[in-house]
Every structure is written in C-alpha cells, then in structure tokens.
Write a protein that binds this DNA or RNA. Structure first.
Lengths: 194, 194
DNA sequence: GTCTATAGGGGGATAGAC
DNA sequence: GTCTATCCCCCTATAGAC
C-alpha cells in the first residue's frame, strides 16, 4: 500500500470524517492530520474543500449504491427485497452516510448534492420497481401506489435517522422502521410472503 | 419596543439564523450583525454560543409546540387531526426548524437536544393519542399499532424534509407525505372520516 | 446593561523548495 | 507529487469604559 499515495489517503480520511462530523465541521487541516498527508498534497489533487467533499461523496455513494443493489437482489421475491431494505442493520446514531449532509449549506451546490441525490434516487427506484413487480404478481392490494409508497418508505428510514439522533436513542429509528414494515403489511394482499 | 433591548434582539436574530443556516454555521458575529447589538451584550446575557443556541431553540420549540397543539385540536375528529398534521403547509427546502439540527455536532449535548426532542415527542404523542382515540372509536383496522404508526408518520415528515433538501425539490416531500396519507387510509376502517 | 476594542486560535488557501 | 512554511480572515471569547 505504499503507492496508495497521498490522494487516496486524503480521500479515505475525508470519507471517514464526513460520516463522523459532516462537511462543514471537517476542516482541510483535520483531513491532513487524519491522513498523514502534507498541506500541498490536498491542493495538488483537489482545487479546494468543496471539490474534495464532492469526490469523497462520490466514492461513498458508489459504495452505498453497490450495497443497495446487493440488497435488492432480483433473485428474491419483490416484497422480500423491500423488507430486506427496511430491516437492514444500521447504526442510527451515526446517521445516513449521505443524507446526513442534507442540512449543510453546501447542499445548495448542485455538484455537492448530486451523489447524495443519486444514492437516494437509486433506493427509491429499487423500492418502486420492487413494489410494482409485487403488484403485477397480485401481491399488493388494489389502490396501492408503488411510487408513493416507495417515497414514504425511504422517508421513514431517513427520518428514522433524524429521530434517533434528536433523541440520542437508536430505538426511535427502530420504531419508525417497524411502522414502515406495518405499512408494507397493510398493503400486502392476504396470502403472500412475509 | 424600546425596552425589547439587546437580549431579545439577539434571541430573535439567533432564531432566524438557526433556521436559515443551522447552529455551527451561525457565528456570534453573525448574530450581532443581524441584531444590531454589541459584542458585550451577547456575553452579558449568555455564557457562550451553546447557551445562546439552547435559549433560542427553547423559544422555537415553544412556538412550534403551540402550533402543533393548535393543529391537534381535540374538537376535531381524531383522524382529521392526523390528516391536518400531515397536510400542514410547509416549506420543504427550509427544513424543520428544530429537527434540522439533528446532524450538528452539538446534538450530543443533552441541553441542546432537549428542546428538539421535546418538540418531536409532543408531535408523536399527539399522533399516538389521536390514533388511539380513533381506534377506540372503531375507526382503525384491527392490528394497527398507534405507537408504531405515530413514529412512522413523524419519520415520514422529517424524512420528507431531508429528501426535499437532498434533491433540492420540494415535490419529494409532498410525495413522501402522500405516502403517509395512504398509510393512514390503509389502516382506516372502511366507513369513517377522510 | 450596553458598548468598542482586542485577543488567541483555527479556518481555507497559497508559495515554493525538494 | 509531496512536503513545510506562511498568509489573511473569521471564529469564539474576554477586557474594560460608559
């Protein structure tokens, strides 16, 4: 790993600090201290703090999108995929690696929010298409709108992180997600999965 | 209003800036510039930035709790109260005045999160008791758990703010809340409100 | 209770040697 | 491509006159 070089050390440190502290609270100095790189290396590879943050977010998004693609395994029955997403193991107090940044001032910069939005969009699409597939298979009740249910389930998870952090109690997220599972059950036609 | 004095000018400016930018992004200097007060006034009335933020959050929480208490008017049928909460007019891109702070480092301080948690708890309690009342009146389907549904509905609203800001598109929140309304309909026994 | 002046430290960024 | 040294500005807080 000697040729991992300063660039990747800087990116790795940034990815870690973004999750722990967010963007504004992470200074270039913090990144350098955490990575062991020198002052000039950062500004050689990135034009500034914003670009560094964007590059780190893009790597984080790539990792998390891959994890989501694995969870929404097309080999599984569609409603099992949705349940797998809701029941995924999470650390509520750490917040969502990407959506955690939604309230930073930098979110107004399109390049900053692009990887975050892409990640959320991917989940919502997986949820919607899974629900559509379930509906086509007669597993959903009539009147269930996959697009609207997908948006609500995603909001429950992201809102669950917020509630957990606001109360500093991971159980708050668990309860919200349980509500999401109940929501799913409520729209599931009698027979199927579970 | 001449005796409104520096203290309330400082608090008002802080309340405004907390909503616009959050806590870390708001400096004591910003507050002084926005309020017209002098440097010393801030530190005469508050021991430091954290205490100022807490005092401002307590006022914001008091205002928002009052607004919630008005929405959950006991004179209304219980399910109408829940719908009124979900359908409340909001500015999705501005975020929740209180829960917006959930990802700031200061949230780890108990006094900082107390007003935020109290506000969220109040909403959740209103939702739960309204749903319990609806259940007692036979308006909810069997198996609907008011506590879990309340947590999910609150998470949908708070998560909706996050989705809207991440996409910089208020429609994202509208869709999530529509899912909340569908969730409610799904657990409503055939005849009732709407 | 309010003000102006100021301090010490860290923020983001640049210069330029190696 | 990497490093050390340095810059200017703003951050939070204190001093002390009025």
């Amino acid at each position: 790993m000697s040729k991992a070089s300063a660039r990747s050390a800087i990116l790795d440190a940034t990815k870690r600090l973004l999750w722990e502290r967010g963007f504004e609270a992470t200074s270039p100095r913090d990144v350098l201290d955490a990575s062991g790189a020198g002052q000039g290396s950062l500004y050689h590879h990135f034009p500034g703090k914003l670009a560094l943050g964007v590059a780190a977010l893009e790597e984080i998004a790539a990792e998390e999108v891959a994890a989501m693609d694995a969870i929404f395994d097309p080999a599984l029955p569609p409603l099992k995929r949705v349940r797998a997403y809701l029941e995924r193991k999470r650390d509520p107090l750490k917040g969502c690696r990407l959506a955690r940044m939604a309230n930073e001032a930098a979110i107004e910069q399109p390049e900053f929010r692009r990887p975050i939005a892409a990640y959320l969009e991917r989940i919502e699409t997986h949820l919607r298409t899974s629900l559509e597939e379930a509906g086509a298979g007669g597993e959903l009740k009539a009147g269930a709108d996959p697009a609207v249910l997908a948006a609500a389930l995603l909001a429950i998870v992201e809102g669950g992180f917020v509630l957990a952090r606001a109360h500093w109690d991971g159980e708050r997220m668990v309860r919200a997600v349980d509500g999401g599972l109940a929501l799913l059950d409520g729209f599931t036609a009698a027979e199927t999965s579970r």
